[in-house]
Computed example of a mutant assay.
Amino acid sequence: MSFSDTELAVVRTAAEREGMASAAWAGRQVMAVAQHVLVPVSRDAGDVLRELVQARVHLRETVAALRSLTVTGPSGAGLPESAATVVEETLKAVARLDAATVAVMRERRPRS
């Protein structure tokens, strides 16, 4: 299997969340789809998922940039408390995007 950088970031995050190696997590998901335990998402949901993944990666990059400012800051003293609050709110936004991404990934077709 091959993944784009964005897709690999999602796989790594999911694997870390479950305490697994990325390859083991991906293998488990592939087997779940093959055994019809997990059904791939619809095309529309896939578009939403891609958008969520892109937003998630952008937010993580933003957090990394903000954290580097809190360490080095323009005067070497870090950022004021208000900036630390922005970092925390951004981390909460990343967590919400993670949850939304997982929800879309787990979409299932009705079984009849």
Rank of each mutant, 00 (worst) to 15 (best):
M1A: 13
M1K: 11
S2K: 14
S2Q: 13
S2P: 04
S2N: 09
S4L: 09
S4Y: 09
S4M: 04
D5L: 07
D5W: 06
T6M: 08
E7S: 00
L8W: 12
A9Q: 09
V10E: 03
V11F: 01
R12K: 15
R12C: 02
T13N: 08
T13G: 05
A14C: 13
E16A: 12
E16I: 02
R17M: 10
E18I: 02
E18P: 01
E18Q: 08
G19H: 15
M20C: 03
A21F: 09
S22Q: 11
S22A: 14
S22F: 04
A23I: 13
A23Y: 14
A24Q: 12
W25Y: 12
A26V: 01
A26H: 03
A26D: 01
G27Q: 04
G27F: 01
G27H: 01
R28I: 05
R28N: 00
Q29Y: 01
Q29T: 01
V30Q: 14
A32D: 07
V33E: 10
V33D: 02
A34K: 11
A34G: 14
A34Y: 12
H36F: 07
V37R: 13
V37H: 05
V37P: 00
L38S: 03
V39L: 05
V39N: 00
S42I: 09
S42E: 15
R43N: 10
A45L: 15
A45Q: 14
G46Y: 02
G46C: 08
V48L: 14
V48P: 00
V48M: 08
L49P: 00
L49R: 03
R50H: 11
L52A: 01
V53M: 11
A55K: 06
V57E: 03
V57Q: 03
V57C: 05
V57S: 04
V57F: 07
V57L: 04
H58F: 05
L59H: 02
R60V: 07
E61Q: 13
T62C: 06
V63P: 04
V63L: 07
A64M: 13
A64C: 06
L66G: 00
L66M: 13
R67V: 12
S68N: 15
L69G: 09
T72V: 15
G73A: 08
G73R: 10
P74V: 15
S75P: 07
G76I: 11
G78Y: 06
G78N: 01
G78M: 02
L79M: 13
P80W: 03
P80Y: 02
E81H: 05
E81T: 11
E81V: 14
E81C: 09
S82I: 10
S82T: 09
S82Y: 11
A83N: 08
A83F: 12
A84F: 04
V87E: 01
V87T: 06
V87Y: 06
K92S: 14
K92N: 13
K92C: 02
K92R: 15
A93M: 08
A93Y: 06
V94G: 01
V94P: 00
V94I: 15
V94M: 05
A95P: 04
A100D: 06
A100E: 12
A100M: 10
A100K: 12
V102G: 02
A103N: 12
A103F: 04
A103R: 10
M105F: 06
M105R: 04
M105W: 03
R106N: 15
E107R: 05
E107Q: 10
R108C: 13
R109P: 00
R109Y: 14
R109C: 14
R111G: 09
R111I: 15
R111Y: 12
